[in-house]
Write a protein that binds this DNA or RNA. Sequence first.
DNA 1: CCGGTAATTCGCAACGGTGCGTCCAGTTAA
DNA 2: TTAACTGGACGCACCGTTGCGAATTACCGG
Lengths: 192, 192
Amino acid sequence: MPASTGARRRGAVRSEEARLAVLEATGRLFAARGYDHLTIEGIAAEASVSKQTIYRWWSSKSAVVADALIEDMLLPDRPVVPDTGDIRADLIAWMQDLVDLVAQPGNDGLVRSLVAAACESPDIGARLNDALGITATVSTRIEAAVAVGQLPADLPVMEFVRALVGGFVLHSLERTEPAPDAAERLVRALLH
Amino acid sequence: MPASTGARRRGAVRSEEARLAVLEATGRLFAARGYDHLTIEGIAAEASVSKQTIYRWWSSKSAVVADALIEDMLLPDRPVVPDTGDIRADLIAWMQDLVDLVAQPGNDGLVRSLVAAACESPDIGARLNDALGITATVSTRIEAAVAVGQLPADLPVMEFVRALVGGFVLHSLERTEPAPDAAERLVRALLH
DNA sequence: CCGGTAATTCGCAACGGTGCGTCCAGTTAA
DNA sequence: TTAACTGGACGCACCGTTGCGAATTACCGG
C-alpha cells in the first residue's frame, strides 16, 4: 500500500482495463445466471483475464460483486420516486416501476440474486438499501412528505423505507405472479 | 396405484429412521454452520446415512431443507403474538421477541440462512412467511384488530404482514446492531 | 542521458482439496 | 422377489494457491 507520501511504488501499474473487464463481466453474468451460479473462474473467462488477476485484487466472489454494485454494473436504471405532491400516489408509482422492472424478461431473478449476495456478504448487505435506490430517492421523498405534514413528524423514516422495500423483497422471494394492484396494496398497507 | 386394498408393495419399505436422521442432522448443521455451508455429504455423514439414501428421496439440498423446515427442525420455538387488546403493544412485544431470538448467541446467522435458502428454492421462499410465524399468529392477530376497529377495514393484511416481516429481514441483512428501540420503531413506522 | 536492476503487474498452467451427482456391488428387510 | 439400505468409486466443476516467463515501470549508478 504505497499511500500518500514518501514510499513510492515501483513496477508495473494496475491495469484499469482488466479491472473494468472484470466488473463488467460480473455484471453480465450476474444478470444472465444469477448470483449463485457466479464463479470466479467464470468471471475470469468472461472477462478474458487470468484467475490470479482477480484473486490479487479481490478476496472473494462477494467482494467482486460488492465492487460491481458500487460501480453500478449490476442493476439497470433504477426507478426514481416522482414528486407530484401526493406522497401516496408517488410511492405507488415508484413501487409499480419496481414491480415492472423485475417483471421484465431478463430480470426475474435479479432481486433474489441481490438478496442472496446480501446474505453472504455484510458489505453487500449494507448496500442493499442503496442498491434499490433508497437513500438516493425514497427516503428524501418521505422526508419531504413529513415536512409538509402529509406524514407524521415522528415517523421513523428509515424503518418505514425498510418496511416498504422489505415487503417488496419478500414478495419477490415468494415467486408468485404479482397481482395487478400489488404495488398499490403494499403502499396502502403502510399508508392507511 | 398402490391403492386401498389388494395391490401390495413388494420389497423393503422406506426407513423412517433414516428419514428422520437426515432431517434432524440437517437441522443441527443448519443451526451450527448456516445454509451455505450445508452440504449433502455433510448431512449424510452427520446422519450416519449413505449419500445415495438422500439422493433417492430428495432432489437437492434445498429440497431437504424445505422438508426440514416443514417438520420444524430448523427454527427454535417461534414467538407468539400476544393479544392484550392493544394491537400496537402486541406487535411491538412480538417483534421484540423476534429481535431477542436472533440476538441469542447461536442464532445470529439464522435469518440470513433462511433467506438464503429462500433465494435458492421457490418451495422455501413460499414458506418463509410461515416459518417466521406469519399465518399462524400474526395475520390472525391483525385480523382481530381489524374486526374491533383498531385497524381500518380495508387494510391489506397480507401486505401489512409482509412489510412488517420484510422490515425485520432487511434489518437482519444489514448486520447492524439493532437499536434498543428497533422493534418499537419498526412497528411505529407501520402504525402511525 | 543511458542502461541495469529491482519491483510489480499480467497471462498461462498446474496443484491438491472439496463437494457434486451418478453408478455399481453387496447386504438387509418386507 | 423386490426394493431400500451401506459403502465405495467415478468424472466433473470450482476452489484458492503456487510457480513460471514476459511485460511494464521506477530507481540508481555510470
